[in-house]
Simulated scan of single mutants.
Amino acid sequence: MNDHERDALLASAVRLRTEGRAEEARQRLLALGAAFPADAEVAYQTAWAHDVLGLEAEAVPFYERCLEGTGLSEEDRRGALLGLGSTHRVLGHHRRAVEVLRGGVEEFPDDGALRTFLAMALFNTGEHHESSRLLLELLAATSEDPHVRQYRRAIEHYAQDLHATM
């Protein structure tokens, strides 16, 4: 199989997943992965197909494989880090979720989705202060609500120490 055929098969599998035909996509991606075992993009799409089907435990090795390899776009790498961290959280592997998501936030500090999922995983590990801090900082930085924007400085201040008073 050449690269052109690989690209066509991958696009077809992604289309199936987006059309709600995730099991068909998964089967095609597993076959494609057998032909291209070191292909990070194929591994990422295979992980995603497993996640969509609720097969989180089966998705983990594909996420790990795609993150170990090269060839993911920046956007797909962000998605893979979020997917792996979220999947670990769903599986109850909260410390591992925090580790993966923290690494994702370090790599992509501007990614609000990664910070949000990290906050959820931190909550699950009992790190409530850091979880709240992350969410308050994200709220202050991204909210379009005029009332939140009016109190942005105060929210950012309190995010650092929820026990503080002005």
Rank of each mutant, 00 (worst) to 15 (best):
residue 44 Y to R: 05
residue 44 Y to G: 07
residue 45 Q to E: 15
residue 47 A to I: 11
residue 48 W to A: 08
residue 48 W to S: 09
residue 49 A to E: 00
residue 50 H to D: 11
residue 50 H to N: 13
residue 50 H to R: 15
residue 55 L to K: 14
residue 55 L to E: 11
residue 56 E to S: 13
residue 57 A to S: 11
residue 58 E to Y: 08
residue 58 E to T: 15
residue 58 E to W: 00
residue 59 A to E: 03
residue 59 A to Y: 01
residue 60 V to S: 04
residue 60 V to Y: 06
residue 61 P to L: 05
residue 61 P to R: 15
residue 62 F to S: 00
residue 67 L to W: 02
residue 67 L to P: 01
residue 68 E to L: 15
residue 69 G to K: 12
residue 69 G to F: 07
residue 69 G to W: 04
residue 70 T to W: 15
residue 70 T to C: 15
residue 71 G to L: 09
residue 76 D to W: 07
residue 77 R to E: 13
residue 78 R to Y: 07
residue 78 R to H: 09
residue 79 G to P: 02
residue 82 L to T: 06
residue 82 L to W: 02
residue 82 L to S: 02
residue 83 G to L: 08
residue 83 G to C: 02
residue 83 G to P: 12
residue 85 G to F: 13
residue 86 S to G: 03
residue 86 S to L: 12
residue 88 H to R: 06
residue 90 V to P: 00
residue 91 L to I: 14
residue 91 L to G: 12
residue 91 L to E: 12
residue 91 L to A: 02
residue 92 G to T: 05
residue 92 G to K: 10
residue 93 H to C: 13
residue 93 H to E: 15
residue 94 H to A: 03
residue 96 R to M: 05
residue 100 V to Y: 04
residue 102 R to C: 02
residue 104 G to S: 11
residue 104 G to T: 00
residue 105 V to N: 14
residue 105 V to K: 02
residue 106 E to S: 05
residue 107 E to N: 08
residue 108 F to W: 13
residue 109 P to G: 08
residue 111 D to Y: 09
residue 112 G to L: 06
residue 113 A to I: 08
residue 114 L to M: 04
residue 114 L to R: 03
residue 115 R to Y: 14
residue 115 R to A: 15
residue 115 R to S: 10
residue 116 T to Q: 11
residue 116 T to G: 07
residue 118 L to Q: 08
residue 120 M to V: 14
residue 124 N to G: 12
residue 124 N to V: 11
residue 124 N to W: 10
residue 126 G to N: 02
residue 127 E to Y: 01
residue 127 E to G: 06
residue 128 H to E: 04
residue 130 E to D: 03
residue 132 S to N: 08
residue 133 R to N: 01
residue 133 R to K: 10
residue 134 L to F: 10
residue 136 L to I: 00
residue 137 E to M: 13
residue 138 L to F: 06
residue 140 A to N: 06
residue 141 A to T: 13
